[in-house]
Nucleic acid binder design. Structure first.
Length: 800
DNA sequence: TGAGCATAGTTTTTT
DNA sequence: ACTATGCTCA
């Protein structure tokens, strides 16, 4: 046996690494093999971005920088080389043991930090990495910006003057505080809307403007000076409550890393590799955080798509991605432009639309997939007809074998969901609306969480105020203000004032009740401190002690399924306990909840019982994909929205949103617009969206199928004149409607007037029948279930 | 304290 | 059109 030269070993090693990632395309491989230094991966929609991230991490963990390195570890033996050669010549995958011998500086899982925007994305990343590498979830630091920061801050909170139990305030909490601040500053809400003020403050925080800077900048501007005062008081109240808002989590972490060399060095040494997903949606503070974290090794990889930046209104600066090469002069840029998701038609439509934007890195998605169906554009008279049309299309495609979960209806504004929901309920189309009312934002859920939060952190005055008189304890608002006043004068939290309330003249009358309440909370805290007691036990104790379910039963202002939601929260707690075992803690659970959203709960892996159509805003749909996508409300003033059509920059963001919408679809897109739409109480007549016109005409087909005019849309009293006008105008825009020659259709067993029996809906009469595909769409008025639309072949009807 | 009426404000919202 | 919040009065 001859000893191989280093060069030969390096060559073989490289080949073996390449083979391991041979299933990836060229560009993807480049991204996987570029492990050191700054790297920007411009990943188009559906280009296998997450797969690349997973494989890149896998490469770093197993091979380290071996692919690019000329270094051969000295300790390898001849036997090792033999094995390497054996793998090389016989096309055998090297064992992990062998890989570890030839690897160059492979990283340990805990040395990798991967930052995502949603918990869902973080979870997916962790799962896929552990599946690939047999390491456990907890080894890899993959989480959202905010939970990463929370995790760091819990350790060092005392350095910043917070306790390790500090509360995390959501937007709702922030609004309440701002309101209080305005009140005590004598600022009138009418002149300074809370939302505007919170926006200004958040905007400042996100762009790295400190309170001091903000004050300085506001000098001479009375409007901004007022906001500065609120800003000041707001921060003070937060501090007093031992609380941080979402922005503070980031700011405080950045400040901690900036000002404390020891902490900074610790994390810079710890994280040898930093990766950031959805980089186009980062803001200035996040940029700073990333910079600080990655400045040790400078191994930073960011992944993003400037064309999918749709969160400018929340402070994201597209400049972060546009200027990446400027900020990191030696950065390498890799474009992933091959799309594995959509048809050619869909991609060229999306490309043509986004080409109208001027501020972009430039990128052209292509695919090897089939051409696919043309995009269907259809104009209806009003939003109910629009919903009818979408419903009928879904029903007819379901009749041809599609599943309900293959469809998504993506709209610009949440309010558009109403008309759709009405029709879907009526037509018995299983559906789910994502993002309208969020679970953790429901009143009863927030109430119960407030109990847990005040137990966890006695300083949390905001939560205390929320529940001190709910369930009713005859503690009036005047008493609460007194407590608050005394607390602020003494510089104490409200809980400590409650405990000793009999000592204050203003509180004497209410003292017994206040002290009862304080005692109860203290009891809960004692229970919580007992290490043997689980969070779920504490929760049940509280629930029973305050008799919450009965309270909800009597309270007519809460929603019908309030009790269900309270029980669902228990399930969530138990799930958390199961997932975290020994590490489960009250503050851990509360952190998770504070940083969680509905979208995170949305499970795109379709379970058997989850065969439902998805309805959501385009924003919520980012990162998801569906075989068939409906885009209703493609009208000027709605999409692009009225406000953005004035401003070229906002318009570009709307266009990116349109791009996101189109690229969600795998097979087929339906675009609809209406002639008239009731919006904000007034009927608007909007022309078709400019985005429709930006799609080349040859990619579009106008639907030949007339929508079924339902009883409901007839109720809008459409005159024949209006109808005719609508038809003419539609023809002007999209050409005359082509009437397809009537195909021979399978015989219809039912006719109008027949009485039928349906398995689920009972007895009913057929009131209309319309051929559709090889089937008939029947409209049936049921005795008890109301009027529904049903495909004749699909549902087993019994003629009576 | 609570019911009932008036009024304002409604683009998107990963945390 | 719809809802959430504030204000008034019993």
């Amino acid at each position: 046996m001859t000893m191989l030269s280093n060069n030969e070993i390096i060559k073989m090693r490289k080949t073996l690494i390449q083979r391991q990632f041979a299933h990836m395309n060229n560009m993807q491989q480049q991204a996987i093999f570029t492990v050191n230094g700054a790297l920007l991966i411009l990943a188009g929609a559906g280009s296998g971005k997450t797969t690349v991230l997973v494989n890149r991490i896998s490469n770093i963990l197993s091979w380290g920088n071996a692919y690019n390195s000329d270094y051969v570890p000295e300790y390898i033996t001849e036997k090792d080389i033999d094995q390497l050669q054996n793998c090389y010549f016989n096309n055998i995958e090297p064992t992990s043991e062998l890989i570890s011998k030839f690897a160059v500086n492979p990283a340990k899982p805990y040395q990798i930090m991967a930052i995502t925007f949603t918990n869902k994305a973080a979870k997916e990343l962790k799962e896929r990495i552990s599946a690939k590498l047999n390491c456990t979830d907890t080894d890899i630091w993959a989480s959202t910006f905010h939970s990463s920061c929370a995790k760091i801050l819990r350790r060092y909170a005392d350095l910043l003057g917070y306790s390790s139990h500090f509360a995390i305030y959501d937007t709702d909490d922030s609004k309440r505080i701002i309101k209080d601040c305005c009140k005590s500053l004598g600022i009138i809400e009418r002149e300074y809307p809370i939302k505007t003020m919170l926006n200004e403050i958040s905007k400042a925080k996100n762009s790295g403007i400190s309170l001091e800077d903000f004050k300085k900048d506001s000098i001479g501007d009375s409007y901004m000076t007022s906001i500065a005062k609120v800003f000041d008081l707001y921060q003070k109240s937060l501090k007093k409550s031992d609380a941080m808002d979402f922005d503070d989590l980031l700011i405080n972490t950045v400040n901690l890393l900036k000002n404390n060399e020891e902490v900074r060095t610790y994390y810079q040494k710890l994280f040898k590799y930093v990766m950031v997903d959805e980089y186009q949606d980062t803001n200035k503070i996040q940029y700073e955080l990333i910079r600080l974290l990655s400045d040790g090794t400078k191994n930073l990889c960011v992944v993003g798509d400037d064309d999918q930046s749709i969160y400018k209104f929340r402070g994201a600066t597209i400049e972060n991605i546009i200027n990446f090469e400027e900020n990191y002069p030696n950065a390498k840029v890799i474009r992933l432009e091959q799309n594995y998701r959509s048809t050619k038609v869909i991609l060229s439509a999306a490309n043509s639309v986004i080409e109208n934007n001027t501020t972009r890195k430039g990128k052209n998605l292509w695919t090897n997939n089939d051409n696919g169906d043309l995009i269907t554009v259809f104009t209806t008279f009003n939003e109910t007809e629009e919903a009818d049309y979408i419903g009928s299309q879904i029903l007819s495609m379901v009749a041809k074998g599609k599943k309900y979960s293959d469809f998504a209806v993506l709209y610009r504004t949440n309010s558009q969901s109403r008309a759709l929901e009405r029709v879907f309920v009526r037509s018995a189309i299983p559906h789910k609306i994502i993002g309208s009312v969020k679970f953790y934002e429901r009143k009863e859920v927030k109430d119960m969480l407030a109990y847990l939060r005040i137990v966890n952190n006695n300083n949390d005055d905001e939560k205390l105020k929320r529940i001190i008189n709910y369930p009713k304890r005859a503690i009036g608002s005047a008493t609460v203000s007194n407590v608050e006043e005394i607390a602020s004068q003494l510089g104490k939290n409200m809980m400590s004032v409650l405990r000793t309330s009999n000592q204050y003249a203003d509180l004497v009358k209410a003292a017994p009740k206040l002290m009862d309440f304080a005692n109860m909370i203290d009891e809960f805290s004692e229970i919580a401190n007992d290490k043997k007691v689980r969070i779920s036990d504490l929760y049940i104790t509280i629930l029973e002690r305050i008799d919450f379910k009965n309270t909800l039963k009597k309270d007519h202002s809460v929603s019908d399924n309030a009790i269900e939601n309270v029980e669902e929260l228990l399930t969530a707690i138990r799930q958390y306990e199961n997932e975290n075992g020994e590490d489960a803690s009250l503050s851990g659970f509360l952190d998770e909840v504070a940083l969680m959203t509905d979208i995170d709960n949305y499970n795109n892996n379709i379970a058997e019982d989850d065969n439902r159509v998805s309805l959501m805003t385009i924003h919520s749909a980012k990162g998801l994909e569906f075989p068939v996508v409906f885009l209703p409300g493609m009208e000027e003033n709605l999409f692009p929205s009225f406000k953005s059509s004035k401003n070229p920059e906002d318009l570009q963001e709307e266009r990116r949103l349109a791009y996101v919408a189109l690229t969600r679809a795998k097979e087929k897109i339906f675009i609809t617009n209406t002639q008239s739409r009731v919006y904000l109480g007034v009927t608007n007549r909007n022309s078709p969206s400019r985005f429709i016109k930006e799609i080349p005409a040859e990619l579009i087909t106008s639907s030949t199928q007339q929508p079924i005019v339902s009883e409901m849309s007839k109720a809008y009293a459409v005159s024949p004149y209006e109808k005719r006008k609508h038809q003419i105008e539609t023809a002007k825009i999209f050409g005359p409607a082509v009437t397809e020659p009537k195909k021979s259709v399978s015989s219809n067993n039912y006719s109008v007037g027949d009485i039928v029996n349906h398995k689920a809906f009972g007895k009913g009469m057929i009131i209309s029948s319309k051929p559709m595909g090889n089937d008939f769409l029947l409209e049936i008025a049921f005795d008890t279930a109301g009027t529904k639309k049903i495909m004749s072949n699909f549902s087993k009807l019994e003629k009576i």
